[in-house]
Structures are given as structure tokens and as C-alpha cells.
Simulated scan of single mutants.
Amino acid sequence: MTGKATEIGELLAPTVEALGLELLGIEFAPTGHSALLRLYIDAPGRLVGIEDCEAVSREVAAVLDVEDPITSQYTLEVSSPGIDRPLFTAEQFGRFVGEQAKLTLRMAQDGRRRFIARITGVEGDVVLLAHEAGDMRVPHDNIEKARLVPDLVALGLAAQPKPTGPGGTRRKAKKES
């Protein structure tokens, strides 16, 4: 998160927590004379509902009106994390060890800024990843953006891939006579 997003997150987290929810993270995108403020919330042990988003939006808007941390006009959005959940903290990476994540780094590491890798662990503020080019240790402050890559087959949202034969060719089913 940017410095402004962190500041706003610290201001709003107690309000979100008072509603029994978790503030996962904030995206703050100023553009010209306006800005977008997107809050991602989670409901421990259950799915986030539209009622949760509405309640957070109402309560947070009141805090923002009083504290006025954004000097320009802005649009407030409150969202559930979705199946391609964004990851904002090293602790959140730790919750999803074994899952794949799509990452964008601030500074290139091993010659790359964008890649998909499996989360293998977290040591302090260092995220451990298994990538096709080998294992990586990425300091969390070098991660600009990260999202889980959902396994659509496991979620039942995509068909199983068809088996392939030697050399990657698809095998034809034998006809029985």
C-alpha cells in the first residue's frame, strides 16, 4: 500500500473491526482532481455479503467526512476480496501457503517484475516463493501488487484438462466394436 493508503487504513481499521469485519487492505488511486478509494474487507469464518459492504461504506464515509484525509473529490468503493483475493501484508501471504499468486514487484528480482509463483512460506517480512526459475525470497516491501490465482478446476468452475499422450498430443479414445 502507498503511504496515503496506509494512513487511511490506520484511520479506518478500528471502524471496520467494530463491525466484526477485517480490513484486508486499501487501494488509493489519485487521478487529477479526483481519486478512487477502494477498501477490501473480509468476514472471518463466512463470506462477505452486500450488507457488510453497505455497513462499512456507511460507517467509513462518516469517519472520512469528519477526519477529511483526502483533499480532493473521491469515489469510495467497499469490496469483498473475491476468488482472486489481493494480498496486502506478509501475514496474509502466510495464510495462503501452497497457493499460487500473481505478483508485480517494485524492483525487478531475478530479471523479472511480473510473475506467477507458489507461496511456500513467510519469514518475518520476506515472502518465500517457488517459481519455474527456482525458489525466491522477496522482501514484502518490494511487492507492489499481489493476488491469488484461483484454481478454477478445484473450485468446480472449470473442466478438468483433457489427458495428453506422449509429446503433449491428445489421445483419441478407442472405439469398441
Rank of each mutant, 00 (worst) to 15 (best):
R170C: 05
R113E: 10
L11W: 12
V122S: 01
F88T: 02
A5P: 07
D65V: 12
L23C: 05
S72T: 15
A159R: 08
H140E: 01
V48D: 01
A35R: 14
Q92N: 08
A90V: 05
G98V: 03
A18S: 15
E132C: 00
P14K: 14
L128I: 01
E91F: 12
R171E: 09
P139N: 00
E176S: 15
L24E: 05
E67D: 10
Y40D: 11
T6D: 02
G3R: 09
A146S: 02
L39P: 13
P81K: 00
A5I: 11
A90Y: 02
G156T: 07
L157V: 10
R38H: 09
F115W: 04
G32V: 11
G98R: 10
T75M: 15
V122D: 00
P44M: 07
P139V: 00
R46S: 07
H131D: 09
L129H: 02
G167S: 06
R46C: 10
T164D: 02
V153N: 06
T31D: 13
L37N: 09
R171H: 08
E132Y: 09
C53S: 05
V122M: 00
V66G: 05
A117L: 02
S177C: 07
D84F: 14
S57Q: 06
A43N: 11
V138G: 00
I116W: 09
A146N: 00
A18D: 14
S34Q: 14
A130H: 06
E144A: 04
V63S: 07
L148T: 01
I26G: 08
K162Y: 05
Q109P: 08
A61V: 05
R113K: 13
P161W: 10
D84R: 14
L39D: 08
A159C: 03
E22H: 14
I119V: 14
V66Y: 12
A158Y: 04
E123V: 04
P150Q: 04
L21F: 15
F28V: 06
I26V: 15
